[in-house]
Write a protein that binds this DNA or RNA. Structure first.
Length: 268
DNA sequence: ATGCCGTCATACTGACGA
């Protein structure tokens, strides 16, 4: 007897990461983009709200479950999913004194996902850069635990690291920025070399592809950008990977975030 | 260029971002 096989349609999961640069200022953009792009999972960063500005009801109407950690004015990360979300961690382990809202990890639709807002790290000669490097070490430590679970997982977010010179429009102009510093690049590689796959770079290794463009100096119109938003996948997730790209559409809208979504698609 | 632009706060200026 043939099974009804009713749940076989699609079986694909689109997972995107997007630094919205203020969810209050970007609510209309977010809702429009969700309707148009229709991701199964959206990992958001820089909510810049304790939570009151998160449009929970509108998101629910679009079919999304929502979990987030926020704080006033700065940082803040969220997971939106069409499947139920079971939060595993709402802070990055390894520093009890770190109260910045930069990490949320959850199970949803059979995949472990995390939305991570890595510290920017500028200026590099201050404790902000030290904090960035320490945060990256803590993500590596957490990743060791995740790898031991041997599960498909996707660590998405604003890594604030441009891994290669080709990920920067002009290395002469950006070379001294924290996102290009060798200390951060080494830790990014240490993370990657644990066995993770950068989904976008797997399909688009060519230089000159960006996820952030400076508001200043007409960066968007000149395509003066950097690639700092990444989706890092465990082997079990990479086995399911069928596509990845950058959706530049929302960056062209009026009053855009300076970041645009990076997404990957898994075939489950 | 310690510049440029944009968001947030209790705000008409400053911190922060990358």
């Amino acid at each position: 007897m043939l099974s009804p096989n009713t749940d076989s349609m699609g079986n694909s999961m689109k997972i995107a990461t997007w630094n919205v640069n203020g969810i209050n200022a970007r609510t209309e953009h977010l809702l429009r983009w969700l309707k148009e792009f229709n991701p199964d999972v959206a990992l958001l960063q820089e909510l810049k709200t304790p939570g009151d500005a998160v449009p929970t009801l509108e998101l629910k109407e679009l079919g999304y479950h929502v979990e987030f950690v926020g704080q006033k004015s700065f940082n803040g990360v969220a997971i939106l999913s069409k499947n139920e979300i079971d939060v595993v961690l709402d802070k990055l382990p390894g520093d009890e004194e770190d109260v910045q809202s930069r990490y949320i990890e959850a199970n949803t639709g059979g995949v472990r996902v995390a939305s991570i807002y890595f510290p920017n790290g500028n200026p590099v000669d201050t404790e902000k850069f030290t904090y960035k490097l320490g945060f990256m070490e803590r993500v590596i430590e957490r990743t060791k635990e995740l790898l031991a679970e041997e599960i498909p997982f996707v660590l998405g977010g604003d890594y604030n690291v441009a891994p290669d010179n080709g990920d920067v429009y002009d290395i002469q102009k950006m070379g001294s920025d924290a996102i290009c510093r060798e200390e951060g690049r080494q830790l990014y590689r240490k993370h990657l070399h644990m066995g993770l796959t950068n989904a976008y770079k797997l399909y688009h290794p060519e230089p000159g592809q960006f996820s952030w463009w400076d508001y200043r100096g007409g960066g968007w119109n000149k395509d003066h950008g950097v690639l700092i938003d990444h989706l890092l996948l465990s082997a079990q997730a990479a086995d399911l990977l069928v596509d990845s790209n950058i959706d530049k559409t929302p960056r062209g809208w009026e009053k855009a975030s300076d970041h645009t979504p990076v997404w990957c698609e898994l075939s489950l």
